[in-house]
C-alpha cells in the first residue's frame, strides 16, 4: 500500500501529459472539421494553417480546444476515448465476435503460451547441456546470442511463409516466433543459476562422492530457481511481443497484432490504441502471475525470509 502513492503520482503525471498533448496533436484535424461544420477558424485556409504548429494553431483558436477530444479519427486519441473503445470491445461484445478484444486477445495469448512453453523447455534443456557438456558450453552460447541479433521483424515473415509452404499454419508458426524470443532469457538465466553454487558447495558434494545427477537434482536445480523465475518474467513478455509481431506482417485476421494493423490501415486509431493497451495489460498480468508464483515458491522453499 505504501507504493500506491508514488505509482498513482506517476500514472497521474503521464495522463496529464497525454491529455495536454491531445490538443496540439489534433488541432489541424479539428480545425478542418470545424470549418466544414461552418465554424469560424483562423487562419481561414488549410494551406495557411499548415504554416502553423499544432500549439500555435491551438492558441489562435481557443474555442476549438474542446473539440480536439471528440474526433472520430484523431491523430492522438484522448485517454477517455481509448478507455471507451476498450470498454466497448472488451465488455460489451460477445467474446466469440470478431469485434471483441477478448477474442483477439485469446488468439494472441494462446500462441504466446504455447510459444513460451516451447521456448522455456528448449531454454532449460540447452542450459542443462551447456552446464554439463564442455562442447555445448563452447558452441551453443555464441549461436544463442547471434540468434537474438537478427531483427525479429525480418525473420517473422520468413518463418510464417516457410512453415506455410509445408502446410503448417495458424497457431504453430506464431508460437515458434514466440519461442524464438523467449528461449534466450531462459538459457542465460538458467545457465547462471545452475552455475550459482560456489566451489565450496561443489567440493562438499565431492566429499560425499555424489554423482553429477545427484548434484543436479539436489544442488544445482534448486539453486537455479530464483534465476529461472527472473527469466520467466522476461521470457513471457518477450513471447507476447513475438506473437504480436508474428501477426503483423502476414495479414493475420485475428489477434492483437491483426487489430493494430487493421486500425492503422483503415485509419481507425482507436482500434490500434485499444489493442496496444490490451496487449500491455495482458503482458503486465502475465508478468504479475509469474511474480506471484515466484513469491509463493520461494517462500515454500524457505528461501524468502517470510
Amino acid at each position: 500500500m505504501k507504493s500506491l502513492v508514488p505509482i498513482l503520482t506517476i500514472v497521474g503525471a503521464i495522463l496529464l501529459i497525454w491529455v495536454l498533448a491531445v490538443v496540439p496533436m489534433n488541432m489541424h484535424l479539428t480545425a478542418d472539421q470545424a470549418q466544414r461544420d461552418g465554424l469560424a477558424v483562423s487562419p481561414e485556409t488549410p494551406a495557411e494553417r499548415q504554416g502553423y504548429s499544432g500549439l500555435g494553431l491551438s492558441i489562435a483558436n481557443p474555442a476549438l480546444v474542446g473539440l480536439t477530444y471528440t474526433l472520430d479519427r484523431p491523430r492522438l486519441p484522448s485517454p477517455h476515448q481509448v478507455a471507451g473503445e476498450m470498454w466497448e470491445t472488451i465488455a460489451l461484445r460477445n467474446i466469440t465476435s470478431r469485434q471483441s478484444l477478448v477474442y483477439h486477445g485469446w488468439v494472441t495469448l494462446s500462441a504466446t503460451l504455447l510459444g513460451f512453453a516451447i521456448g522455456t523447455t528448449l531454454g532449460i534443456l540447452l542450459a542443462v547441456g551447456i552446464v554439463h557438456n564442455r562442447a555445448m558450453d563452447m558452441s551453443v552460447m555464441p549461436w544463442a546470442i547471434a540468434s537474438q541479433t537478427i531483427p525479429i521483424l525480418a525473420l517473422a515473415p520468413m518463418i510464417i511463409v516457410m512453415m506455410g509452404s509445408i502446410g503448417i499454419q495458424g497457431l504453430l508458426p506464431k508460437a515458434v516466433i514466440s519461442a524464438y524470443l523467449s528461449f534466450f532469457p531462459v538459457v542465460v538465466g538458467m545457465v547462471k543459476g545452475l552455475r550459482s553454487p560456489d566451489a565450496m558447495q561443489m567440493d562438499l558434494l565431492r566429499t560425499y562422492y555424489a554423482s553429477s545427477a545427484q548434484a543436479f537434482w539436489k544442488l544445482r536445480l534448486p539453486a537455479s530457481l530464483p534465476y529461472l523465475f527472473a527469466s520467466f518474467k522476461i521470457g513471457i513478455s518477450a513471447a507476447l511481443v513475438g506473437a504480436i509481431v508474428a501477426e503483423l506482417p502476414t495479414g493475420a485476421r485475428a489477434g492483437f497484432g491483426a487489430r493494430m494493423l487493421v486500425g492503422d490501415q483503415y485509419g481507425q486509431p482507436l482500434v490500434t490504441w485499444a489493442a496496444l493497451f490490451a496487449a500491455a495489460i495482458t503482458a503486465a498480468v502475465l508478468v504479475g502471475l509469474f511474480a506471484a508464483m515466484e513469491r509463493l515458491t520461494l517462500r515454500r522453499m524457505g528461501m524468502a525470509q517470510a
Binding site: Q201, L204, T207, A223, G302, M303
Partner: peptide, 13 residues
C-alpha cells in the same frame, strides 16, 4: 571422512 568447511554452507531451501 566427513568434511567441515569454514562456512556452514547449508542449503537455504
Amino acid at each position: 571422512y566427513g568434511y567441515v568447511f569454514q562456512a556452514a554452507g547449508l542449503y537455504p531451501w
